[in-house]
Design a protein around this nucleic acid. Structure first.
Lengths: 208, 208
DNA sequence: GGAGTCAGTGAACAACTGTAACCACAAATG
DNA sequence: CATTTGTGGTTACAGTTGTTCACTGACTCC
């Protein structure tokens, strides 16, 4: 007790986080499958062998990055997908939330978009699982919506998957226009809004 | 004339194609940014230096692979997007075409999905340009459709982009279920069909 | 048919990689 | 306080990488 336990663990977490940060930064210009363990430790200023104290391999680090990038995003689903005055308001809210997230964490978004179909199987699986969780959360939220009356479970899942994919597309579109002229960015936002709106229109007339 | 010119060029093209094939095969389990030039030449059974006779770098080879994977796909747009008896028939046709293409050229599809957001900038750009061409072709085809009356140019482009993205999503979904049990594959096909149908419904009610 | 072109070879290079064994020393434990 | 634990450092190894250079020998052209 007198030795204030946890000093050591705190330091360990600190270097672990430094490794994650350095890796994420290095991954802006390459894929995970070409990321070397020495490269990461060099960027942190730590011995190569120290890497093993935190991760088995770079693939392992990649899985941790998936958790970091997507794990904290789940609470946002409820607030985003919850019913609004009208559909357009909900769409605007979602688009703004995505734009804000991309602007705040561009490297994380880039990492997910890149490694979703990337060359490292465990990372692909981790991303797939997280996205499946998102889809399930969206489905649950859609089910509470009044306009979901008469929808089959299959169709609800289909729609939830469509929304999740569309949000990823939107995020990666915003990422590409991050350092583009203002008018191009505005055009991207408008395109994303209309695409979501078209899906929304399809949704309201689905049961015709 | 008597010397039958072209024997040399034919041989060169043959090894070039062998390099492309070997690279594509190696890329099933890794990303382009980690593909080594020696790795490719070793797989072909040729000296490392021979690589330079055909490509400046692996990034250059990647751009050539983009051309190979997407270049020959443009003619398919017209036949796929051309009007049909009813919308559902057109959707079925498109889904079957995608499924067939994925089954026939899985490595190409995987390569495009992987490198679209991959770590090699010139390859990303090449893919983006090809997809932009697809979107333009889809837009042109949509414009001839009777149901496009009253649509703005902006909205037509928006819809074309949505279709192209959705086709890529569908292709990568089919790719994931390539060696999955039959019922899961059927479910994937059904999901893809319904997602396209929902977009189609949104399209017909867009001007309300 | 002789000269030139050029796809592919082989050896050599400096730099890099992942990983192993062993060591140092501060923190945690009793 | 003495002992154990475990993060991180050091050194070393065997393999790999991209790129260079001078070369061979078959094909092409005049």
């Amino acid at each position: 007790m007198s030795h204030t336990p946890g000093v050591r663990q705190a330091q360990k977490r600190k270097t672990r986080q430094a490794l994650l940060d350095a890796a994420l930064s290095l991954l802006e210009e390459q894929s995970l499958s070409s990321l070397g363990l020495r490269e990461v430790t060099r960027a942190v200023g730590v011995a190569p062998t120290a890497f093993y104290r935190h991760f088995h391999s770079t693939a392992d680090l990649g899985v941790a990055l998936v958790e970091e990038a997507l794990g904290s995003l789940h609470p946002m689903i409820r607030t985003t997908m919850s019913p609004a005055e009208d559909d357009d308001e909900r769409i605007d809210r979602a688009v703004e939330l995505i734009a804000g997230h991309v602007a705040a964490h561009p490297a994380h978004v880039r990492f997910i978009a890149r490694e979703r179909h990337g060359g490292v199987q465990p990372v692909r699986r981790a991303i797939r699982e997280q996205l499946a969780r998102f889809a399930e959360e969206v489905r649950a939220e859609l089910a509470t919506d009044a306009s979901a009356a008469g929808w089959s479970e299959t169709d609800l899942r289909m729609l939830a998957g469509l929304y999740v994919d569309q949000m990823l597309i939107t995020a990666s579109l915003f990422l590409e226009t991050l350092d583009a002229p203002d008018d191009e960015r505005r055009r991207a936002v408008e395109t994303a809004r209309r695409q979501l709106r078209l899906i929304s229109v399809g949704r309201t007339h689905w049961l015709d």
